[in-house]
C-alpha cells in the first residue's frame, strides 16, 4: 500500500502541476520533451555501444601493457596474417555455413507443421522444441561432452557401435569436432528459429490459402507460392542474425575444449580473440581481431541484404 502511494504521488503531482504551469515544465515542453523521452536510449547507446566501439578502434592501434601504452600503427593488423587466424576464419565460416544449411530450412518446415491444425499435440511440441533455448549452454555442453565421450561406453559410441561402426574419439578430429559444435548449435537454436517462423506464419492471411485451394493448388504449391514468399521478411531477418551468430560463435567451442582444441579444430574467430585478448592479454591485438570480425559480418550481411532487395525502396 505504502509503495503504491509513493509511486503514484510524483506522477499525480506532475499532472496537477502540469495543468497549472505548463510553461517551463520539461515533461510538457514540445521542444525538449522528445529529447527527454529518448535520452535513456541515447545515454545507454553512447555509454555501452558508441564509446566502446570508438575505444576499440583506438585500442586496435596500440600495444597495451599495465601502465604503458605504445602506438604501433597497423602492427596489430599485420599480426593477423598468421595460420591460426586463417584456421579460425575457416572454422567459423564452415560452422556458419552448416548452421545456415540446417537452422533455416528445418525450423521453417517444422514451423509449418506446428502451425498446421492437423498436427497432433502441437502445443507440446512447440514448448518442447523451445526448451533447449532456455538451457544454459554451459550446462548443456557438459552433457554433450559426456554423451560424446571418448570411451567405448559413452552414449554416442554405444549407439554407433550398435549400428556397426567403430567407436569415435569425437573431440580429437576435425570432422567430428565440427559435427559436435553444429549439433549443439542446432539443438540449442532450433526452437528459437521455429518461433520466428511461427510468428511469420501467423501473419499470413488465411484467405490467401483458401482462394488458392479454390484454384486447385496442392500443399506443396501453396508452400512455395504463398508461404515462402510471404515469409521473406522473417527469412531475411533469421538469415541476418544467423550469419552474425555463426561468426561470433564462442560457447559451442568453449564447452567442448575450453578454448584449447587439439590442432585448433574448434578454434573460432571469437575464440582466437579471447585467446589473444585475455589468455595472452594482448588487448590491442584482441581489439583488432574484434574489428575485423565486425567488418566480416557487416560485409556479408550487406551483400546478403542487397541480394534480397531489402534496400530497394517501395518494395514493401
Amino acid at each position: 500500500m505504502k509503495n503504491n502511494v509513493s509511486f503514484t504521488r510524483p506522477i499525480q503531482f506532475l499532472l496537477q502541476k502540469g495543468k497549472g504551469v505548463r510553461k517551463g515544465n520539461l515533461l510538457f515542453s514540445k521542444k525538449y520533451a522528445p529529447y527527454l523521452m529518448v535520452s535513456p536510449f541515447i545515454i545507454f547507446f553512447v555509454l555501452f555501444f558508441l564509446y566502446p566501439i570508438i575505444s576499440t578502434i583506438h585500442m586496435s592501434f596500440l600495444e597495451i601493457y599495465p601502465g604503458e601504452r605504445t602506438f604501433v600503427g597497423l602492427g596489430n593488423y599485420y599480426k593477423l596474417l598468421n595460420p591460426h587466424f586463417y584456421t579460425a576464419l575457416y572454422n567459423s565460416t564452415i560452422y556458419t555455413l552448416w548452421t545456415l544449411i540446417i537452422l533455416i530450412p528445418v525450423p521453417m518446415v517444422l514451423a509449418v507443421l506446428l502451425n498446421s491444425k492437423i498436427t497432433p499435440l502441437r502445443n507440446v511440441f512447440r514448448s518442447a522444441l523451445f526448451i533447449p533455448a532456455l538451457t544454459s549452454v554451459i550446462v548443456a555442453g557438459v552433457i554433450f561432452r559426456l554423451l560424446f565421450g571418448e570411451s567405448e561406453s559413452s552414449f554416442a559410441n554405444a549407439v554407433i557401435t550398435q549400428l556397426g561402426f567403430s567407436p569415435q574419439q569425437w573431440m580429437m578430429h576435425h570432422g567430428t569436432g565440427m559435427f559436435l559444435m553444429v549439433l549443439l548449435a542446432s539443438w540449442r537454436w532450433m526452437g528459437v528459429n521455429i518461433l520466428y517462423f511461427l510468428a511469420g506464419l501467423q501473419n499470413i492471411p488465411q484467405t490467401l490459402y483458401e482462394s488458392a485451394e479454390m484454384d486447385g493448388a496442392g500443399t506443396v504449391t501453396k508452400f512455395f507460392r504463398i508461404t515462402l514468399p510471404l515469409l521473406k521478411p522473417v527469412l531475411v531477418y533469421v538469415l541476418t542474425i544467423s550469419i552474425y551468430a555463426g561468426f561470433r560463435m564462442f560457447e559451442e567451442s568453449y564447452v567442448f575444449w575450453q578454448n584449447h582444441s587439439p590442432g585448433n579444430i574448434g578454434l573460432t574467430i571469437t575464440g582466437y580473440l579471447y585467446r589473444q585478448g585475455f589468455e595472452n592479454f594482448d588487448l590491442g591485438f584482441g581489439a583488432a581481431i574484434g574489428l575485423v570480425l565486425l567488418l566480416i559480418v557487416l560485409l556479408l550481411n550487406l551483400i546478403q541484404l542487397k541480394f534480397f532487395g531489402v534496400f530497394r525502396k517501395g518494395d514493401e
Binding site: 580429437m172 584449447h260 582444441s261 587439439p262 590442432g263 585448433n264 578454434l267 585467446r275 589468455e279 595472452n280
Partner: peptide, 15 residues
C-alpha cells in the same frame, strides 16, 4: 604453452 598444448603435441603424437 598454448601453442604446445593445442598444436605441437597433437601434430607430432596424435595426428
Amino acid at each position: 604453452s598454448n601453442r604446445v598444448k593445442s598444436n605441437v603435441l597433437y601434430e607430432a603424437l596424435r595426428r
